[in-house]
Structure formats: C-alpha cells, structure tokens
Write a protein that binds this DNA or RNA. Structure first.
Lengths: 101, 101
DNA sequence: GCCAATACATAGCACGCCTACATACGGGTG
DNA sequence: CACCCGTATGTAGGCGTGCTATGTATTGGC
C-alpha cells in the first residue's frame, strides 16, 4: 500500500497516512508507529528513496519510489490478487453441501 | 478459513489441512505447526468443539463448528470482504495520474 | 493562551506464522 | 525383514511486524 500511494508521485510520511486513509474510504488508519518503521524498512530494501525538505521552519521527509520499488509494486499487486483469490476460494460458502467423509 | 472448511461438516486436523490446500488450488499450504495451535485457540474461544475418534488403532481429533463459530464465520467473511476491498482501493493503480501536491 | 493539526520518531508488547523437531501407526516395496 | 511414505497429532523457539504509548516540535485558529 505504501508503494502504491507513492506511485503517482513523491509524498512525505504524514501525507502517506492520510492518502491511505482517504483511498480506503477511512477504513484503513495506519498509525505513525506503523508506517515510519515500515518506510525505513522499504528504504533499506531499496524500494524507496527519501530526501529532507524544508517548509518554512518545518522539516519533511519526502519518499519516492525507486525503479526497483516500481517493479516490486507490480509483483506485489499480482501476489496480493493471487493471495486474496486463494483465500476467497477457501472462504466461499459451500452452496452445494458435500457429503461428510 | 478453518471455520469455513468445517462449515459443511466435521473434519479432523489433517483433513482440514488438505481441504484448505485443495480448495485453494494448492496455493495455500498450512503446516501442522500452524493449524493445530490455531484449532486449539478456536476451541478455547468456543468457536469449535472437538472429539476423539478411533479408526482402527489410530486416533483422530474431530473438529466441528459450534453455533457461535457458525455465526462468527459469517461476520468474519464480511470483515474479510470489507478488508480486502479497502486494501484493493488503496492498491488500485492510478489510471488518471493525480497532480503532485 | 491553549488546543488541534501537522510532522517525525522510538520502545515495548503481543500475536501468530513458520521451521524444525518428536512421536506413532498403516501399507507398500525392495 | 527393513525401510520409507503417507497419515495423524502435537510442541518449542525464532522472527517479523502491527499496535499502543510516549516524546518532541512547529503552525494556525479560537
């Protein structure tokens, strides 16, 4: 999700939180203790690149996708599709009750 | 998923593993170290009921949904739907690139 | 003057999946 | 007869990571 909201362009951490919240219609509310460590992990993995900005007296850390991160986003999206599809198959209610073995 | 495969009728642990594997088309392969503790947790929570069976010299522990477990399955299914939908919204690629703030 | 929103970050807890290991029966094959 | 695979149940420890709580600082509105 973090990679996904950065696809359209660089954002800083706080904006990423609100972006995820907005895109999910308020359903997903990531906390700072969740995303800041996560962003660090992604940067350490080389999927993101960060740079400090100054807006007046305030500092912002701006994150942007690397080329590796962009490719990774594609594979992760497919993986998520496959994963949810698999779970969906297991979760699908038995419309036709099978005989008990 | 465990509750789901038990919906059609009681199964023992090993059969649950193969059931999940079959239903997911081989994509999901839960290991014994995963499901046996999980089944215990679900039983402790009152969602499952277990009983020992004897097949020849071999013993089986047979799990079956309780009424609470059956209701829980319904709510969990809806929750999973909502959850994946929310994530899907965040993950959806930006077909129309938004201006960078 | 104070509080909310903006903005970043760390520390510790809890949860649960995974790997690896342990045990044992039944049936087939070399 | 020995061996191994499939069936069957289980525990122990490691590890990742999301969550809660806490800390700091600036900006702007009431």
């Amino acid at each position: 999700m973090l990679l996904s909201v950065l696809e359209a362009g660089p954002l800083h951490g706080y904006a990423i939180i609100t972006a995820v919240q907005d895109r999910s219609g308020g359903a997903l509310e990531l906390r700072t203790g969740t995303i800041y460590p996560a962003l660090n992990r992604l940067e350490r993995l080389g999927l993101l690149r960060s740079s400090w900005q100054s807006v007046g007296e305030r500092r912002r850390r701006c994150y942007e996708l690397t080329e590796v991160g962009r490719r990774n986003l594609d594979t992760e999206r497919s993986a998520w599709q496959a994963f949810t599809h698999a779970i969906g198959s297991v979760l699908a209610p038995a419309t036709q009750p099978r005989p008990v073995s």
